[in-house]
């Protein structure tokens, strides 16, 4: 029987790394201990010397991967449009950064380079010959609030269809398929500050119905809530602001874009199984992993799915273990 290939993105340990509680070797050891088929590194976060790492550093990274028997799979880069005040990056800058990153990735043994939608389809097309030469799969991340039908991703899809190349594709991030706030989102708030019982009910409505936010706010007050509850709901539960309201699965909370996911799967070799919280029963409320894994199985997906933890539990390793176990459970079920 086929098996789902698991990735671990070191980003999931980013909190402890950035705050000085873990070294790069520590997080590699954690990934090894959890067990996975491949790792991802977020270049600006953990690659020393980014955006121009030295050969010495890259050699030491390769040595560490060999020591911990980890396969480098995905090298994640960005398009930093904030760098120059008042303007986006020029195509020449995007080309320079992307080609250099693909070269670094190749040197360190990565197979996929993940960039972002700001790379633009026209630039991505010009990068294809370099990706082919290097044998790198250059992929764009589809991240919430965008979804498969967002216009820019339809342009990317047309490019993938036209080129039909193994070296261009997409990294789908499950933030684009989430339907509500994580189940434990209210946990950090001390007791007595908000009505958690009311807000949990509102959170459930938000994730499972299309009741407009303003109606949900009225429900808070009808249930006996107050302005602090409204503040918490707007800040923590409602993920759609006026600028992103036309995009993203959360906007279509009860209509996850299964068809769009299936359509893009053909061009995917790696995806971000983004999650915020795994409960003690091994479930991930708010993201319908079961049906997406079913589709992956139906489509004979042979790429990786990375367990990308974006929560606040100090025991990040346990969260990732639960996530991997859940994915395997669904894969075996269908």
């Amino acid at each position: 029987m086929s098996r789902l290939k698991h990735g671990i993105t070191l980003y999931g340990f980013g909190g402890s790394y950035v705050h000085g509680n873990a070294t790069l070797e520590d997080v590699l050891r954690k990934a090894r201990d959890i067990g996975c088929d491949g790792i991802e590194i977020v270049a600006p976060q953990m690659v020393q010397g980014h955006p121009n790492p030295s050969v010495g550093w890259m050699d030491s990274f390769k040595d560490l991967c060999a020591e911990y028997e980890l396969d480098p799979v995905c090298y994640s880069i960005y398009v930093d449009s904030g760098k120059h005040k008042g303007r986006f990056t020029r195509e020449a800058e995007r080309m320079t950064d992307a080609v250099a990153s693909m070269e670094f990735a190749k040197y360190m043994g990565f197979k996929v380079v993940r960039s972002q939608d700001a790379l633009l389809p026209t630039t991505m097309e010009k990068l294809l010959p370099y990706a082919e030469e290097l044998g790198i799969h250059l992929a764009i991340e589809l991240h919430g609030p965008y979804c498969p039908t967002t216009p820019i991703f339809q342009e990317y899809y047309e490019l993938f269809e036209r080129k039909n190349s193994d070296y261009l594709g997409i990294v789908m991030d499950f933030s684009a398929f989430a339907s509500g706030a994580p189940g434990n989102v209210l946990a950090p708030i001390p007791d007595g500050v908000v009505h958690k019982d009311i807000l949990n009910k509102i959170n459930h409505h938000y994730a499972t119905t299309e009741i407009p936010e303003e109606e949900l706010v009225k429900m808070i007050y009808a249930e006996g809530g107050d302005e602090a509850d409204e503040y918490a709901a707007r800040k923590l539960l409602f993920s759609i602001d006026p600028y992103t309201a036309k995009f993203g699965t959360p906007y279509w909370r009860t209509h996850p874009d299964y068809d769009g996911f299936r359509r893009l799967l053909k061009y995917s070799k790696y995806m971000h199984g983004k999650f915020y919280y795994m409960d003690e029963n091994g479930n991930c409320p708010g993201i319908d992993f079961e049906n997406y894994v079913r589709i992956m199985k139906e489509e004979n997906y042979t790429g990786y799915i990375a367990s990308e933890y974006e929560g606040t539990d100090p025991d990040d390793a346990e969260q990732i273990r639960r996530h991997i176990a859940m994915l395997d459970r669904y894969w075996e079920k269908y």
Partner: peptide, 23 residues
């Protein structure tokens, strides 16, 4: 500080489009 990266995109010559609030 403005964002280092975001979901708004365009070509440099266009400047930042109106929706590029993060920048």
């Amino acid at each position: 500080k403005r964002n280092d990266f975001g979901h708004s995109f365009g070509e440099a010559e266009e400047g930042y489009v109106e929706r590029a609030l993060e920048f």
